[in-house]
Structure formats: structure tokens, C-alpha cells
Amino acid sequence: MANRPTTKDVAREAGVSVTTVDRALNGRMKVREDTLRKIAEAAHKVGYHGRVLLDERLDLSKPRLRLGVVLVKGGQEFYQNFAREVEAAMAARSDVRGEVIVRFTGSQSPDDFAREMLALGDKVDAIACVAINHQKLDETVQALKDRGLPVFSLLNDTAQGIRKMYLGLNNMKMGRTAAWVLTRTMRRPGKLAVFVGGNRWHGHDLREVGFRSFVRAEAPEFTVLDSLVNLETRQVTYEATLDLLARHSDLAGIYVAGGGMEGAIRALREKRPPGKVGLACNELTDVTRAALADGYVQMVMSTPLDELCSELIEAVVAARRDGANGESVQRFLDPRIYLPEML
């Protein structure tokens, strides 16, 4: 016990006075964070018994940051992964005491999105959402902004000009990429089908525009059929794909611009041999990975969730420092492209 380290040992190792060490320990007077960190590191180095208390003081010196995240379709693998990634990205930050509150909407109605966002507004410092485009959500985002809460649009650019940032993929390029793959890999020209989630997802509209513009300019030997709304559900996509296959013997390819690709994969497995009808879709899941391996999917364009969530937390930290106002910006990430030979 005679050799037990004391505050003098900690002070000597940290290069500060014993009085400063005492203030750091008892918390009666404020100590600068960099000094507190230096003292805590010194306490660990010399084995001082009060190092746990110093660690607690150091943690409490970090600003608290609470982020609310609104997602859709909580039962889908992609959005479950999304929730885990954003929580992990916040936990990885050492400069804040971060907390993420994730909410899943019960439907894709503007009322459900607005309700979840406004409810979170009383509990968090910023909100990030995957939401539809609708005037009610423009009003909701403006109301949150007026209260000093920045809002970040993810994957689909909601409330343009009001939200703090759009963070996601370049949807126009996604559509063009899908068209390039299908028109370049299918052995014969024919008809191409496009599924979109609904008319309120402008990101899907942009993917459709990109797809059609590429085919029109670069592959006029293909014909793009009228787009189909699948509400991003497997069953609707499955039934619609069966109908397409029955009505169009020359169907060459399908692009699922949003969710529900599992239904198209199921229909193709039942009615066509691998590679007879090309399929381009989004997000690498157990189902799409298996379909790639079996030749039913020609390409998967996947959102880099780890990168997106890290960038989101970085932007939220900056917004907490700078406030909700300021320039409204877009940040495009590069998709991860998966082809059969890459598995």
C-alpha cells in the first residue's frame, strides 16, 4: 500500500499541478477537456485508483447528441440492416455521447411519416428519414427546422430546399446503369419492364427517367413498357411479373427500381430458365445473392450503408455545432455493384 500511486504521481505524469488533478477528481470546478483527458491518461499510466472516476468525468464532458431516424418497412432485411448500421456508426464516435432512436412507420402515408417525425422532435437534436415526397412533409420539415432541428433526407430526397442534406445515391445514374447492364447483357432485343414503388418516391421517378433516357439514346432496339407500381411489396411484384411473362413472350429484362424484387425473382424462377429474362435490382440480401449465383439476376446495385451512416453521423455532429440553418446540400455516394462473377 505504501507504493500506491497518489495525485502527485498523476500530476507529475500529466504535467499539471496537484490542484488541477484535484479539481478534475472532485468536479467542483471546470477543467478543460484536453487537460482532463491528459490527466485521465496519466492516471491509467501510473495505476491511480481514481482513474475510473476520471473516465466518468471525461465522458460527461462530451456533448450529448440524440438522433431520431425514421425508416419504412421494419420487417425487411435492408431496413433492419440500416437501423443496425446507424446505431453502430453513432457508437463508434468518441467525441459525443450519442444515442439513436429508430422508428419505423406503419405505412407509406404522409400522415404516418409526419407523425413519427414530429413525435421524435421532442426527444432528439436532429432527425434523419427515408420518406416520400409530399407537401405535408415539406411543412413538417419546415416546422422542425423552425424549432432548430435539422432534418436529413436519406435515399429519397424529401423536402428539397428545406432539409439540411440529402444523403444517398444518384438515382438518375442508378437508372442509367441498370439500363446499360440489361441492354448489354441480354442476347436479343425485346421489351423491358420497370417497377417503381409509387408516384410519391421521386427517387424512383429519377431512376425510371435515367433508365428510359439511356434506352432511348443508346439502345433503341429495346422497348420500355409502361411502368408498373408495386408498392415495394413482394406479392404485388410477383403477380405483376407473372402477368408480364404471360403477355409478353419477348420480354427481355426487368428493372425493379425500389423494393419488392423478391417477387420478381420468385416469378422468374417459376416460369423462365436462368438468364432468359434479365433482372437488375437493388440491395444485396440473402435472396438477391442467391439469385445472382443462380443466374436469375444480372446485377445488384447496393447502398453502402456503413459509409452512408458514418457520413450521416458526421453531418449531424457538424449541424449540431453550426445549427439547423445554412446551405441545403446533396451528398451522393457510389453504389456497390455486384455481378454474378463477383460472388
Rank of each mutant, 00 (worst) to 15 (best):
Q135K: 06
H134K: 01
M117A: 14
D112W: 02
A131L: 09
E116A: 03
S107M: 08
D138W: 02
I101N: 05
T105C: 15
L137R: 06
D112T: 03
E139D: 15
I132K: 00
D111Q: 05
Q142T: 11
N133Y: 06
A131S: 14
C129H: 10
C129D: 00
Q142A: 15
N133W: 04
A131T: 06
G106Q: 05
G98C: 04
V130W: 03
S153V: 06
S107N: 10
L137T: 07
G106P: 00
H134S: 07
A119P: 04
G121F: 13
A119K: 06
T105F: 06
D138S: 13
L137E: 10
F152E: 03
F113W: 07
D112P: 00
A119N: 12
V124R: 14
A119G: 11
F152I: 09
V130K: 00
L118A: 13
A131N: 08
T105Y: 10
D122S: 14
S153C: 12
M117G: 05
V124S: 12
A126V: 13
Q108E: 05
S107R: 02
P110Q: 12
A114I: 04
C129F: 09
Q135N: 01
V151L: 14
D125K: 04
A131P: 02
S109C: 02
L120M: 01
L137F: 13
D122A: 10
L118P: 05
G148K: 02
G121V: 11
S109L: 14
M117P: 06
T105S: 13
L137C: 05
I127A: 09
V151N: 09
